[in-house]
Amino acid sequence: MTVRWLVVVLAAMFLALIAMPAQSEYADVVLNRFSEKEGMRPVVFPHWFHRIRFRCKVCHSELGFKMRAGANEVRMTDIIEGRFCGMCHDGQIAWAADNCDLCHSGKPGLPPGIFGGHETSGPGRW
């Protein structure tokens, strides 16, 4: 009996080792409060790409993005008028908002939130 259990445990360990699920990059944020309702793919925001170029304080202080994913009501009109993403995505600092597909690139049906293996198996808000 003990031997059988050992086999089961070891088999499970082996399977866990070979089964590596696809995982988004740490701290990728999905914005999909409005996108799909408006007929666009959800937005995937990669933190890693942006923090190479800007410190947190630029977006989270100067641009007014609240730190909690989901706390910001970002509409396309805001961006076109130069608020939120539109502060940089203006064709000067970064590409302009007419490159729809570069941001609206997520799989259909993605829930909004922060992704990338952040889970600490607690009952967290994230």
Binding site: P21, A22, Q23, S24, E25, D28, V30, R41, V44, P46, W48, F49, D101, L102, C103, H104, S105, G106, K107, P108, L110, F115
Partner: peptide, 23 residues
């Protein structure tokens, strides 16, 4: 680091997969 097309978030059919910088 996984390629963008395999990150589980990006739609592999999206042009972004070809255009964005891979992590």
């Amino acid at each position: 680091w996984l390629p963008i097309a395999e990150d589980g978030l990006r739609d592999p059919a999206s042009p972004a997969v070809r255009l964005l910088q891979p992590p």
